[in-house]
Design a protein around this nucleic acid. Structure first.
Lengths: 298, 298
DNA sequence: CCGTTGATATCATTATTTATGATATGAACT
DNA sequence: AGTTCATATCATAAATAATGATATCAACGG
């Protein structure tokens, strides 16, 4: 039994006539007759009494009519409910730390854009405080930040979990030695600087010397050239491991992993583009967190 | 949007994979892909995020899934509910007065039998009291009687409404004269005798003389031969008006019309054959009572 | 008695829709 | 680079639905 059968059945039941129903449906009479007969034989019951003035529902038919009404009603309601949700079109302003922008966003944005080609994406990089302010000021729809954010007007979705490693120039294998080197950071507010500061405090008595490099690429270049050491997501190094001349030290502290979360305003109107983006990142995260490919149901 | 689309959609949503869903449905993967894509384009929304491990519902898709579950559930429930109602097969014992049996039952039984060829119909004629007793004794499933029946164990459905007329031999046009004639009746308990008795009491002072003829055809023959007068449903006379040599007098009393009702036991199990028959006569009555062929809805 | 009307049923044919099979594409993992 | 495991595409085959012509059947009217 199919909903198209029920649609036809309903009209026949209401019109009390196959001919009338066919006219109403824009079908030929024989087709409607055949559909009704097929429905009856499929269900193994008589749905109509045939008489020379048309068709009249049997009690079985009346039962089916009540189901048919509910089913067709739900189908229409569903169509209504879904056609209301329009495909997202328009700008979507996302903020991000530089590291996240270079590690995670290219892939994420590529697949998101493939799904929603009408969305005009733009990424603004900056330090955590700047990004939070822009989100609060409605300059950004949302931002990826690596601090835990507890602002009352913001809500956050944990997104990425990156292993952080200390990197040093090739040949610098002595962890004690490298702690004396300057530390290359993006800016004076970045989370990597804070973590390094904390770590150095625990490890050594000396106050670390920071050099602000401005971009991730500049930091990597500086490390390779032996200017200093730095703290970076492991994945950034692994990506082009072969072409890089760096040594990796595992960071043996509690801040070994860095969680990045996506923040949005708690109150504001959620645009269709942002809504789609939120959906999308939630979906991607579920996939990435899923333990393995579930093999089941033979 | 069709229920078959929803059935496929549901499996894909649950399996999280078109390939798996196709396997489960016994379809080829490309078909499922096409159906889902068509559904999406028909609704104008994206129902799934595609990723390299399969498909994941969007929030729009989740909404549709909840509708799909309800719709498919109702379809299954309907199938269940209807397949339980078996086609009636077996004997159906009906009682009837002779007049009703000859006027109404041939047509009624013909069309009923056409609808339910598995039902083995049988008619028992008799007077009202005998029929009532047989129904109460479970010897008959039901009976057409022309008395108002108020027995506590019986319920009744009004069925036919027949105009009664007094008939006399051709040439007997004087109403005063014919009241002196004997009255031909089926039996001493029949309703026609009672009505005539009442009418004669109002009309004349003389006590009427009744002759029991046993069958309707015998009465008609007796009237034609000038043996006496009788009271019969007008339709019986009209049926073969041309071939009969009788005169019709309208009965000018309150019993002008005779109502026939179908009685059944109130309590007993209603067999599928009886249930179908009840349904059927209710339907036929609605048709006959309907004022005209309803013309509507352009 | 016979033809007309107004309904459903049947059936061969056509049109449309659905399913298939082969192949392309694409991302992740090795 | 190659393998694996997904979805997407496309020409074609198979199944299903719609059509048009015709049959049937009961009621009605002349």
């Amino acid at each position: 039994m199919d909903s198209s059968d029920l649609r036809i059945f309903r009209i026949v039941a209401r019109e009390g006539s196959i001919t009338q129903a066919a006219a109403r449906l824009g079908f030929v009479q024989s087709n409607v007759t055949a559909r009704i007969k097929r429905l009856e034989s499929e269900l193994g019951t008589t749905l109509f009494f045939r008489h020379n003035r048309g068709m009249k529902l049997t009690s079985t038919g009346k039962i089916l009519l009540s189901y048919a009404d509910r089913i067709v009603g739900l189908l229409e309601e569903a169509t209504q409910a879904l056609s209301a949700t329009l495909e997202p079109i328009g700008p979507l302003m996302i903020g991000s730390s530089q590291t996240i922008a270079s590690i995670h966003l290219p892939k994420l944005f590529t697949s998101f854009y493939k799904q929603y080609p009408g969305v005009i994406l733009s990424v603004t990089t900056g330090d955590t405080q700047t990004l939070i302010k822009k989100v609060l000021d409605y300059d950004l729809d949302g931002a990826f930040i690596s601090h835990l954010c507890v602002h009352p007007d913001l809500q956050s979705i944990p997104c990425f979990n990156d292993e952080l490693v200390i990197v040093a120039a090739e040949g610098n294998f002595d962890i004690e030695e490298i702690t004396t080197r300057p530390i290359l950071v993006l800016d004076m507010n970045c989370i990597y600087k804070e973590i390094m500061e904390q770590w150095m405090r625990d490890k050594t008595q000396t106050r670390p010397h920071f050099i602000v490099m401005g971009t991730v690429e500049a930091i990597i270049g500086g490390v390779e050239a032996g200017l200093g050491i730095s703290l970076l997501p492991k994945i950034i190094i692994k990506k082009n491991e072969n072409s890089r001349k760096m040594h990796i030290f595992a960071l043996d502290s509690l801040n070994y992993n860095l969680t990045t979360e996506f923040i949005i305003r708690r109150d504001s109107f959620v645009s269709s583009t942002l809504s789609a983006f939120l959906d999308y990142i939630k979906c991607v995260l579920e996939i990435d967190n899923s333990p393995a490919i579930p093999k089941n149901q033979g």
